[in-house]
Design a protein around this nucleic acid. Structure first.
Length: 464
RNA sequence: GGUGAUGUGGCAGAGCGGUUAUGCGUGAGCCUGCAAAGCUUAUCUAAAGGGGUUCGACUCCCCUCGUCACCUCCA
């Protein structure tokens, strides 16, 4: 598999020995997560699913930044403790994540539980003179790391001349960034240099090295983290280990809202919860992988709607296959399946091109639906197609609604009843039964000679 | 200003030096008692502009113009 590496700006072969280790920068838990977070998480979850579905073990670590000025300020505003606030938002994070059908990461380390690891790292950096103590805290000495700027392709001279306001006189250089900030107020921790709390960047260095080792396969996050966060992580980590840090830097593009950047000041932030409420998890997942992961996606009603229509096609396809009962053989689809599977995998193997992968997927779905429309889906065909379809659904993290055996029995009974009434031309009564079936969340599809049913995901936005 | 990316049909969005991307939309139709869903078919004769390389460029090179992101916390 090849992945575009931000550092070298090239597609790089994903090499690994026993497993693929991924560190994904998570969220700062001071508010609800938004659709932009969702995209990044979905991209990496889908990547992980793809690898695992192909029997490649994955260790995915995603952190929570639970100590930060934003958390502290927000907590103060709300008259709550910082830890209370972050705990609350970690909980809502997991609720969102579960609804989005995100597989749980191997571990979700929290910054506050790794203070000791960070202090150890900082101590070593101070010893190596890559860091120094000033009156406000401990700072990383950027001048000591000659490769600074290699990820974001920035030159330190440019950065210095471009650096804005608020020059901290206690720093040797405006580029130096905080590893440890002194503070007498809670939350704070003891350190060899005095009470305080860690800087943002150091936590990811400490936790990624702790859980994944000095150099691991993929470090991921949103594009906006390239500078300064990931640049600084590289500086800290490589100064600490004297080795190459992550082998591949993989960055997900931003989501804009109707062409505008999502921001608090514009007031156009869409929370995951809000979007899920209207569109449900499958549509959101389809939407988030509809374009290449590295490019921006614009959030519009039309795009969501388009993905809803595509979801309906998937549902139809699934139920046509599930309920196939014909025994005679009418079509040979083995080559279609082979080709679909191969092209699907090839697309994802080439820089995780989900857009292309989806087109292969929908090609297959359309072909099946087309056969189904001609009532040409036999049991045998269904048995061949279902594993391929289910493989793709699993990779894409899509979940078609299913029904219990009891419900199935009820449904078939009701359909039989309706059929009899229809034969007798008692359409009003037949429609009543259809309504009754609909109340179970089941839609009917009348083919020429048989009535198919399916459970469609209820999507609020569809009704408007 | 610096850095990076990008500019494809009404919209979304891929690949590729020479073959229909795909999907949505739109038009017509099929199926049905009706509906919904689905399907069929047609449709727009896409490549920011200007040079160049080539037998041939949307695809490679150069220039111009435009858009976006980052350069401060940010997924």
């Amino acid at each position: 598999m090849k992945i575009s590496d931000t550092l070298t700006n090239q597609k790089k072969e994903l090499e690994f020995s026993d497993k693929v280790r991924i560190y994904l920068c998570g969220v700062t838990v001071y508010d609800q997560s938004h659709i932009g977070h969702a995209r990044t998480i979905i991209v990496f979850d889908t990547l992980r699913r793809f690898l695992e579905a192909n029997n490649i073990p994955v260790e995915l670590i995603q952190n929570f930044t639970d100590v930060d000025d934003k958390i502290i300020n927000r907590a103060k505003e709300q008259g709550e403790s910082a830890s209370g606030l972050s705990t609350k938002y970690i909980q809502t994070y997991f609720e969102d994540s579960d609804r989005l059908n995100i597989k749980r990461a191997t571990n979700y380390p929290k910054a506050t539980e790794h203070i000791k690891d960070m202090i150890n790292l900082i101590e070593e950096l101070v010893t190596k003179e890559s860091a120094y103590v000033s009156k406000n805290g401990v700072y990383f000495r950027v001048s000591k790391f000659s490769e600074y700027g290699k990820l974001s392709k920035k030159k330190t001279e440019d950065l210095e001349s471009g650096s804005r306001i608020g020059i901290d006189e206690s720093k040797e250089s405006p580029l130096d960034f905080a590893l440890w900030k002194f503070s007498d107020t809670q939350p704070n921790w003891e350190s060899p240099w005095g009470k305080g709390r860690p800087g943002w960047h150091i936590e990811c260095s400490a936790m990624s090295i702790k859980y994944l080792g000095k150099n691991f396969e993929i470090h991921g996050g949103g594009r906006d983290l390239i500078f300064p966060h990931h640049e600084n992580e590289i500086a800290q980590s490589e100064s600490f280990t004297s080795e190459q840090f992550a082998k591949i830097w993989m960055h997900a593009g931003m989501i804009t809202i109707n062409g505008e950047k999502m921001s608090k000041s514009v007031g156009n932030v869409k929370s995951i919860n809000h979007v899920l409420e209207s569109w449900g998890p499958n549509v959101v997942r389809l939407f988030c992988i509809s374009g290449h992961y590295s490019k921006p996606i614009d959030y519009t009603e039309d795009l969501l709607k388009e993905n809803l229509i595509r979801l309906r096609q998937i549902e139809t396809c699934y139920y046509e296959l599930r309920l196939a009962d014909k025994t005679e053989e009418l079509e040979d689809i083995s080559s279609l399946l082979k080709e679909s599977r191969e092209k699907f995998d090839a697309a994802l193997n080439d820089d995780f091109n989900t857009s292309l992968g989806l087109s292969v997927f929908f090609n297959m779905v359309k072909t099946i639906n087309s056969l189904a429309s001609d009532e040409k889906i036999s049991k045998n065909i269904s048995e061949q197609v279902l594993p391929v379809l289910e493989y793709m659904l699993e990779v894409l993290g899509l979940k078609v609604q299913t029904v219990s055996d009891d419900e199935i029995k009820t449904i078939f009974d009701l359909i039989d009843k309706r059929e009899k009434l229809r034969d007798e031309k008692k359409f009003e009564e037949a429609d009543k039964i259809r309504d009754q079936i609909a109340s179970l969340g089941i839609s009917l599809i009348d083919h020429k000679n048989k009535t198919l049913w399916m459970k469609k995901e209820a999507i609020k936005a569809e009704k408007q």
